[in-house]
Design a protein around this nucleic acid. Structure first.
Length: 274
DNA sequence: TTGTGTTTTATTGCCTCC
DNA sequence: GGAGGCAATAAAACACAA
């Protein structure tokens, strides 16, 4: 063993394993430093992982000094490796050799350290990404719950308004028949209701083209309309009465959808009973 | 002191690139 | 085909509670 090395047992560890400290060799980084090198047990004769960095860099010496067990790098070695990693996390051959020489390590060790360091870095990044996405997801979940609640409230409001409208229209119908000297029977009321063209109901003066035919206007007002339209939304074209420009089908193409609450506000003004 | 969980160093096998 | 990268894994080293 190199006579310049000093063997010191590290009493700071509670482990039964002893530590072998050595003084740095010819490498400037380790001159005056005392990297920690382990031996197996007190009194064990195993060779330390490092002797002098310059020696260990020599292939022949390293072959002779192959450690039976892995050894931790010193803090100085790790610090330099970390600084180098921060500059560039990939290792070109020249840089690897230079680092190995400076640190008194085998180039292969430097490569392995960088490989493991990249893996740690990647894991850390994944953890951060996960935390960020989870936080974002949780936030969206809260928003979604709020929207569901709001949607439920709006649907109840729509239902209430539809019921009021239907009652009002029934009253208008009875009044109209009475003015004509008729006593409205149930049959009269039913006859007035079917069939109605949706467009006629929406726009009294437009007349003519059939776009959507419903079985009874009251059903349009009630449950059937809700089943035809996307729940909570309606097609803008229903409001403006220009569906005749489209194919005579129930396609949603070209529609702009608005919440039912807006539809009702519009209806209250324009949807007159024919 | 010991058991256990975590971190670090090293190996292996597979893949891609030149 | 060799070099280098990566994922998975082994195993030593370490930290720490009991």
């Amino acid at each position: 063993m190199d006579s310049s090395r000093h063997l010191i047992f590290d009493s700071s560890s509670s482990s039964t394993r002893a530590r072998l400290l050595m003084l740095g060799g010819g490498n400037p980084i380790f001159r005056g430093l005392r990297p920690v090198v382990a031996v197996e047990e007190l009194g064990a004769t195993k060779r330390p992982f490092f002797t002098s960095p310059d020696e260990i860099y020599e292939e022949q010496y390293y072959e002779e000094q192959l450690p039976e067990k892995k050894r931790r790098l010193t803090s100085e070695q790790v610090n330099l490796l970390e600084r180098s990693f921060e500059e560039e996390n990939k290792l070109e051959p020249d840089r690897k050799s230079e680092l190995a020489r400076k640190l008194g390590m085998q180039p292969k060790q430097v490569a392995v350290w960088f490989q493991n360091r990249r893996a740690r870095s990647k894991n850390k990044q994944l953890e951060q990404d996960f935390d960020r996405l989870k936080s974002s997801y949780d936030s969206l979940l809260v928003d979604h719950a709020a929207h569901l609640k709001d949607n439920e409230r709006l649907q109840l409001e729509v239902k209430s308004l539809l019921e009021k409208l239907e009652a009002k229209q029934e009253a208008s119908l009875v009044t109209g028949l009475k003015l004509n000297g008729q006593v409205p029977s149930t049959a009269d009321l039913m006859a007035q209701k079917i069939p109605h063209k949706l467009e006629d109901m929406l726009s009294p003066g437009s007349g003519g083209s059939t776009v959507v035919e419903m079985e009874g206007a009251n059903q349009l007002v009630g449950s059937s309309r809700e089943s035809y339209l996307v729940e909570g939304y309606h097609c803008e074209e229903l409001i403006h009465g220009d569906m005749q420009s489209e194919e005579d089908d129930l396609s949603d193409e070209g529609c702009n959808y608005y919440p039912d609450g807006m539809f009702m506000e519009h209806n209250n003004q324009e949807w007159l009973w024919n």
